[in-house]
Design a protein around this nucleic acid. Sequence first.
DNA 1: ATCATGGCGATTGCATACATTCAAAGCTGG
DNA 2: CCAGCTTTGAATGTATGCAATCGCCATGAT
Lengths: 233, 233
Amino acid sequence: MATRGVSVTNKLREAVLGGDYAGGTRLNEVDLAEALAVSRTPIRAALSTLAAEGLLEYRPNSGYVVKAFAAKDIEGIYVVRADLEGLCARLVAQQGLSDLHRGLIHKVLEESEQLQNAEDWTDEVSDVWRDLNDRFHNTLIEASGNSHLAMMLRKSRAIPLLNQLKFRWFDVATLARSHDDHCQVFAAITSGQVVRAESIAAEHVYRSGQRIIEHWRKMDTRKPAAAAKARAA
Amino acid sequence: MATRGVSVTNKLREAVLGGDYAGGTRLNEVDLAEALAVSRTPIRAALSTLAAEGLLEYRPNSGYVVKAFAAKDIEGIYVVRADLEGLCARLVAQQGLSDLHRGLIHKVLEESEQLQNAEDWTDEVSDVWRDLNDRFHNTLIEASGNSHLAMMLRKSRAIPLLNQLKFRWFDVATLARSHDDHCQVFAAITSGQVVRAESIAAEHVYRSGQRIIEHWRKMDTRKPAAAAKARAA
DNA sequence: ATCATGGCGATTGCATACATTCAAAGCTGG
DNA sequence: CCAGCTTTGAATGTATGCAATCGCCATGAT
């Protein structure tokens, strides 16, 4: 078992990313310590870490507040992420795929293909698709062999509340389109079409970002109320 | 005055970036506390922060070690940075420059122009050029209005030892070329040539990365000795 | 009524004592 | 001499007490 500091950091990160705390919520050290049954020390370590990761904002002598993301921020993040995923695809196309990685991606695409035929659209299917999508992107990142790029993309994907939107995030049509994009990126990579690989991958991410921003704007209307409630509490 | 935690973090960050500790050096909490005349608490906070920033590596129950960068890592970082600076230039070209930012960049370019005529090549000139270069890039980043992009680029530029290489980093020819690149990026932006702006900016950064990697490889030979010494200490 | 001010409560910042863990030196038996 | 166990010490992990700071509210003067 890891140290309390690490485990508290993970728990807190998950909570923030999961949207348990509304943006702007102030995090009280003693409350958190009490809730997680540890002393303030590991809590402080966790808060410090999460602040450095960009999930919290720190103000000396004042404490930590959950960073609030506006629709404009999400757009900015997705512009960057789309560009980086494009770069990633380009790098992989340039240097070629190892047998291992090609096999992994092939498997993902096959499972995705099967998922298309699923008649009932349950939350479970949603989760499976999410997992497949993650595996596709993560395998590509790993195949790029660029650990710094990997870190940047990880940070660009760690946005609070995003996981909460998984329900009704996509319908059959968007899933089909997404799967098709994946196939084309893979095809471009295996045939060494670097420019195509980059364009398609970037556009693929950018499009999904646009969809998310739409949903975000809808939730954003209720945001002020949540922020106010947080301030009152 | 800020809290001890913050000030210690800044001091330590500067030390690591300045190359005061060789890559692989183990950072002892009590020694640091003694050296900086504070208790272990703010030291631990600083170490935690720097680890989250990617400058240190943390292993539970073992402590923090200064991250070691190989030439391959530097190359990976510069590939990402070149891409992001390209994105930055593209964004600015797309949305146009405000009068404020145009003025700032214009001033930087003028001062750079004057610097070309400096006959003696002292370290002071080196520092001035460094400052001008930073201002050019920072202004562009600010003009992009994308705070997430700004954060990513900041991280991509924070590499230990890089500042230490400032002596003999560039000669008159490379400075002239660099200045010319800046001018062309500016011209492309003001005339709305988005693709050119992106290409030139990316290539500009990539080239300077290549130059740095060359120098890095030369220093890398003495690296194993330094690492061994650190391990022994 | 508004603004300044001073104290009060709550929260964070820091130091230190103690617990825990890991690793390397030393010891014992073969 | 070596292998494996034991021990020991030095480092990190955690809890807690106290100090410092900030924001808020009440009080008073202009």
